[in-house]
Design a binder for these strands. Sequence first.
DNA 1: CTGGGGATGGGGCCC
DNA 2: CGGGCCCCATCCCCA
Length: 494
Amino acid sequence: MGSPEDDLIGIPFPDHSSELLSCLNEQRRLGQLCDLTIRTQGIEYHTHRAVLAACSHYFKKLFTEGGGGTVMRTGGGGAASGGAGASVCELNFVGPEALGALLEFAYTAILTTSIANMPAVLQAARLLEIPCVTAACMELLQGSGLEVPSPDEDDCERARQYLKAFPTATTTASTSGVPNGEDSLPQVPLLPLPPPPSPVAHRSCKPRKAFLQTKGARETHPVPEAPTVLTHPLTNKEEMVGRVGNSGGSGLGGSYNPPTGAASPVDGPLNSEVFEGEEEEEEMVYPPAFRLAQSNEPSLSPQELGSNEDPIDPNLMAYLSLLHQDALAPGPDGQNKLVRKRNSQMPQECPVCHKIIHKLPRHMRTHTGEKPYACGVCSIGFTRNDKLKIHMRKHTGERPYSCPHCPARFQHSYDLKNHMHLYTGDRPHECHLCHKAFAKKYHLQRHLKGQNCLEVRTQGHREHVSGQPGLHRETLSRKKQTNTQKRQDGINNK
DNA sequence: CTGGGGATGGGGCCC
DNA sequence: CGGGCCCCATCCCCA
């Protein structure tokens, strides 16, 4: 009998985690199985405790160290009925926009927010103890030359107090789950609420405001801080908005669409900070992915550009946001533009994978998933025109690379090069263990990876031989002989 | 298991 | 600064 490890196989399902998250997000959108309602400044969000606890240390403490676990049982009965009867958290120390963005992040791994709202999101991420978001926001703000706000002590204290008071704070919500007035929700003894302006509003955002004004790209939308548009194509926001029939909100809360039917967060206190005198909506310069999503080009749908199954790298979002900023950069500053232009011609470090790339825009399409060049025959999309051109050879039958020694013709130059190995006898890829040589590197890799190399097998056994009595040296040597014989036969046949 | 062709993706370089 | 080409890597399929 072998060891237990011999009997166990592990079958990976790489998509499982993303699909799981996607399902949870769907449940959240439909209000299904939600066992918690978060309320902040009159806005309610239905959500799942487990998801929050998995993302946020604060929520984890809230639900596990406090009395949340026991309370949850009281509200658990309603969970299956679509969130009715779920527990309610009052988190008035976090603004609705920031909370919406963080919830979106928790369920999609995509942080969708505006540069202007970034400080509020940062503060919320700090309070809720979501380190990766905190780090990403700080990096983005620093990279943008914006002020990184220091933690708000008042909010921190309120968060702490809420954490302490939580065991007695949660209870069942109204059966409807809809904020249909001030139903008798027990309130957590919190510090006095600040006046309506959200944390965003009362923070030192004047420089940012001026910054955005000089960008001249803020608009007359009801939301003073539209989410960074660059994130739109990379989340399936349009689809989501469309599905719930909310055509109005482009803000974070609006995109989240809390299923309560309550006033959209876009109508929140932030509106008090509507920028004045910015009536003209300038044409925004979007990154290619967004242009595609906006246009009628046939290649990409928003889902293809980025879906829940394909969460965008935070660094990519930062890059896109910076692109967006560049697009909004003040025109008269010719020098800055010159610098940017020159930089764009030089090899640049990819903000996502950190490789040095000569043609960064082209490279970025590999991260955004943009495939603007679609085959007219089979509709396959390509990131580059030259790839489409090569692909078209498949349909046209064109084989421009012909072998000088035989009638063989190839679609790809590299295939011809591989083919030429036949005549040169060149086998440049040699196994360093068994010294078997291969014409193609991949064959060597397959040789090693597939445990085809006798030496790999042998070494592997030497390493585990003490723990694996089931295999004997005798067997190994027999196999070795067989393989050697086979190789000899092959050579002789040739 | 190996060899060969096909297909696709990505980077560098030149124009 | 994008288009086009070349080269390379990787994977798949099939004999």
